[in-house]
Design a protein around this nucleic acid. Structure first.
Lengths: 238, 238
DNA sequence: GACCAAATATGGTCAGACCATACATCGCGG
DNA sequence: CCGCGATGTATGGTCTGACCATATTTGGTC
């Protein structure tokens, strides 16, 4: 019951050139106090500074891009080159997608994480009292939706508003990634349930509990909602 | 209160070559039913099959490696080349480390995630009743530890045993990554507390509650333990 | 001042070469 | 026949240099 450990990472030979580049870029970020929006030197310049080939620099930048820390744009000007960014959700989404594809993770495990994060978010949103307007807007959007796809889009906005109200950016990123991973399942579930009135009743209960500052009530409402969407034993990949 | 969105990902120009390679490799994994331990074709062979340069293939493989899905080994033989693996924890750890370095995430946000995951794990461990022997071994290791570093190593083993007992590999990976991110803080905290008797008392309460199948008790014991380690207002980066 | 053309800096990509590594194979000696 | 070392070879790792695509900057022209 642990993650499979075959092919146990790289053994400790010499570090690869791009790993050295990675470490140097991290040092530089820390030392220079770089933050989101700042630019890294160009690929050719970094290669010369670090005495490596440009391809090694590019591999390091690709890693940073995968982790949602830089974003590269060609061309010239202040926004070109490798710019520091903060998009952890993309990395998490890719991770879930690939490991689900490898059957290294089951949808059930992802759904467990979703329940955990949603309950926590709802409790904290109830205590902060923020984001109620965004949630209301999403509720209206779901009421007006004409198909499962549109409904789910507003549903995602509703749940992300709750996560954002919790005040924790990491939780928001996890929620984004999880919703991306279960998106197809969500659309199917809406179609399968034959209607959205039950879901909307759940949503309104959640919204009311958060608005009333009732943290336990919000958590319970979330649990009931997710139990409807993911009936026990009905999640593929168990 | 959301993740910063400056430099908003790549706009929708032509996809880059390595992205196409990535998509093709994913397709191939799904179509051929590849799983952990299987080998991908060599870089030169993939490049020829997909009509791209070898550097594009390498960038795609670097992304997959970053996400913990492949592991590359030079040389010859069955374990050489790009082998499918499953090491999501490394990717998560890198993500936390880099975003903490960028001050895009605060330690408080990571600690929130830790509390969430630990409580959930303890509840589920109490219901499954597994892993008690591993937890006991870690307790003994902490008793025998001679310094903060050694103590924390066994402490990590204790908490990972709880996560593993929950039966959710994604949770295990998150726990691993979170512990990696807060490792330095944990060692400092042990030194600062001036002794480990309080921590061990917490651990034994947690262990007893899990052994007794007392899920709420286990969750409460975890919460009390983490409140001791992370006193409110005392976590850097708030 | 407005506008268009050329220069330029940047990432994106490819081709080819060479190195380091580690298994596979072969051949020799016992 | 077995053991073992030398050689072969396939693999990833790295560098170089070239060229393309793109977008800004620059500067000239009206």
């Amino acid at each position: 019951m642990s993650v499979d450990d075959r092919a146990p990472a790289r053994q400790g030979g010499r570090p690869r050139a791009f790993e050295e580049v990675l470490a140097r870029i991290e040092e530089r970020i820390a030392a220079d106090g770089l933050t989101v929006g700042d630019r890294l030197p160009g690929e050719r310049q970094l290669a010369e500074q670090l005495n490596v080939g440009r391809s090694s620099v590019r591999e390091a930048l690709r890693v940073l891009e995968t982790l949602g820390v830089v974003s590269s744009q060609a061309g010239r000007g202040p926004d070109a080159g490798a710019v520091l960014t903060s998009r952890p959700a993309g990395a998490l989404a890719g991770l879930l997608r690939l490991h689900l594809g490898l059957a290294t993770l089951s949808l059930r495990e992802v759904v467990d994480l979703r329940l955990m994060v949603e309950q926590w978010s709802a409790e904290h949103a109830a205590r902060s009292g923020e984001g109620l307007a965004e949630m209301a807007a999403a509720l209206a959007g779901m009421d007006a939706a004409t198909g499962p796809g549109e409904f789910v889009a507003h549903d995602v906005a509703f749940h992300l508003a709750i996560a954002a109200a919790s005040g924790n950016r990491l939780i928001v990123a996890i929620m984004e990634a999880v919703r991306g991973a279960v998106h197809r399942y969500a659309v199917d579930a809406v179609a399968r349930l034959g209607g959205t009135s039950g879901l909307q009743a759940d949503h309104r209960r959640i919204h009311a509990a958060i608005g009333a500052g009732d943290a336990p009530g919000a958590a319970a409402a979330i649990a009931a909602h997710l139990a409807r969407v993911y009936p026990p034993g009905d999640v593929p990949g168990e």
